[in-house]
Design a protein around this nucleic acid. Structure first.
Lengths: 338, 338
DNA sequence: TTGTAAGCGTTATCAA
DNA sequence: TTGATAACGCTTACAA
């Protein structure tokens, strides 16, 4: 029914081996021959069978996406970014949301990979910080690229967003609005992304000679509920900060909620900022000052790096390692009133 | 390196054909033989190669997910639901966000399917309403299941959420709060989901003998920006409704924003409701009364239906066609003050 | 530069 | 109930 390599070979009067060479862009084909074959391929609409190809060459033209984070918006952008590059190169994307807490997680990922002989995987934060997973993938010889906030792997294996720098911008934004007493709702400190963001923020405050006592830093779990509790701690006291920065938009939204409950006006009496720029940030009232990572582009880079690995050394594209998030200023931060 | 069917055959002293029968659960295998083979399979950790299997049997064990809607939350839930069933049955999920506006869209989907010889696809709204796509899939003999708000296909090919009924609940919720002058921000009327929701809403109002003049119904585009304009039309006038219902949460959020700009208190002076129960709905202030579809379960059902199609008639599971969304009451709707 | 022949790991045909 | 043997559509030694 559908056109095979044999049909193309017959029609163009060459061997299937030559057709194979053409579709694989082998240089060892005469110009005339190549053109004739390409002609026939176009005429017949031939498209090589992935399974057969994979069976013969042990490749699948399938890339995997491993993640745990339930931040749907982020994931959707990653998928679209990754697919934009996949489409050009004939790869497909197979998704694998897992639960990194599960003891079986790493084996589960390895099975996922071997089941479909994936040509490589992209790993999203926070799973991307998992050293054991990365080690297991290296051992299994599975190409991978991690998206992360810290430089924790070779340039070939990672796309880093410089969140430390982004949080410096956030700090200077607030200080320049006059804030010197700032509360910080951090993420879990066992995540590098959390420590990184906090470190960047504190480092920039230093520059302005602003101190942040430990009592102003409370650790959340990156979800709404924990954000509520942390914000409550920071705000439900006469001695409250004039600004709150949260490790992500979910917790910043929680801070807005607590402020609303306590009848504290944002931004007049309190500034609030988040991190992620998810859909919430632009829709919530007041809209949220936050930090946006170039997620789509990071995913593009990741796929390119993955595919680079299967190229000959001289054909490798030079690809950047680090991308820069940007500060998005909105309604929730304003001049300090005190 | 990895164990193949030949190894299993040799080790268990039978032909590979017999091993094949065992792994495919053919009844034509002696009990003793079957057990011996299963034993060896367990010992060796043999797992049949998908590509080889697919090449020989023209199946891929790959399901596709086709969508256009950029509602990320919804899509993430669908993916997780679908995968929960896929995992049990050894299928993987390949994603394909497209743009249904593109003239090439249907061909693009067909190529997507044939490229990887997908065993079936799930189509999400609003693309799921596309008749031409469904027809093309039938012609291409590609099994599909549509997730939709209206019963527009055979029970085997669709999972319907009864949005008409859900909107009846919404209407009665508002009427019982005392609202009789209600504004409705509809979705594009060329979508069945839009007409269906509006129809359900109006039908229930009839029951209460409440009239909705045409001027109270404005058509949005299901996005935030159009929601802003529609809400402005309805609210920025002395003669404004006491409640606004929007076709989705994005536009309801826009209504909240416009109300905030016009200094109209929600829910004291105005009730607002949406549809979707996306992350926005629970985080925004005031939190949004809305309707939640059992998206995860719908996706589970869709995969089961897809796989049912490749089963023998007598092994087919009976699967429901319709699911029921639920009304989620939150802060944004309250007693009518007039 | 091109072709021949042997796989890749399954399932399918047909006979025993 | 079983088993040889031939596909499936492609890539890859190895020759020529």
């Amino acid at each position: 029914m559908s056109v095979t390599i044999n049909d193309v070979a017959r029609l163009s009067g060459v061997s299937k081996r030559t057709v194979s060479r053409v579709i694989n862009c082998s240089p060892a084909v005469g110009e005339a021959t190549r053109e004739r074959v390409l002609e026939i391929i176009k005429e017949t609409g031939f498209s090589p069978d992935k399974q057969a190809r994979g069976l013969a060459s042990s490749r699948s033209y399938l890339l995997g996406l491993i993640y745990d984070n339930p931040d749907a918006l982020y994931i959707d952008q990653v998928q679209r970014g990754a697919l934009s590059v996949c489409a050009e190169l004939g790869y497909e994307l197979v998704v694998h949301p897992g639960s990194s807490k599960h003891e079986d997680f790493i084996d589960d990922c390895l099975r996922f990979i071997s089941r479909s002989k994936l040509d490589g995987v992209i790993i999203l934060p926070p799973v991307s910080e998992n050293k054991a997973l990365a080690a297991a993938l290296r051992e299994a010889q599975c190409p991978y690229v991690r998206l992360a906030s810290v430089d924790l792997d070779d340039a070939d294996n990672i796309v880093v967003s410089d969140e430390r720098a982004a949080m410096r911008d956030m700090a200077s934004h607030l200080v320049e609005l006059g804030h010197t007493d700032i509360g910080f709702i951090s993420g879990p400190q066992h995540f590098r992304s959390s420590t990184e963001r906090l470190a960047g923020f504190l480092a920039e405050l230093q520059v302005y000679n602003v101190q942040l006592p430990d009592s102003r830093i409370v650790e959340g779990k990156n979800n709404y509920e924990s954000g509520l509790m942390c914000a409550q701690t920071l705000l439900d006291t006469p001695n409250r900060p004039t600004a709150i920065v949260a490790n992500n938009d979910e917790m910043a939204a929680a801070a807005l909620r607590v402020a609303s409950n306590l009848n504290i006006k944002v931004p007049d009496e309190l500034s609030v900022a988040g991190f992620d720029d998810n859909i919430l940030a632009s829709r919530i009232i007041p809209s949220l000052t936050t930090i946006r990572r170039p997620v789509y582009n990071m995913a593009c880079l990741a796929v390119q790096k993955l595919i680079n690995k299967s190229r000959a050394t001289k054909e490798k594209l030079p690809l950047q390692k680090t991308v820069t998030p940007t500060l998005v200023k909105r309604e929730s931060t304003g001049q300090c009133s005190e």
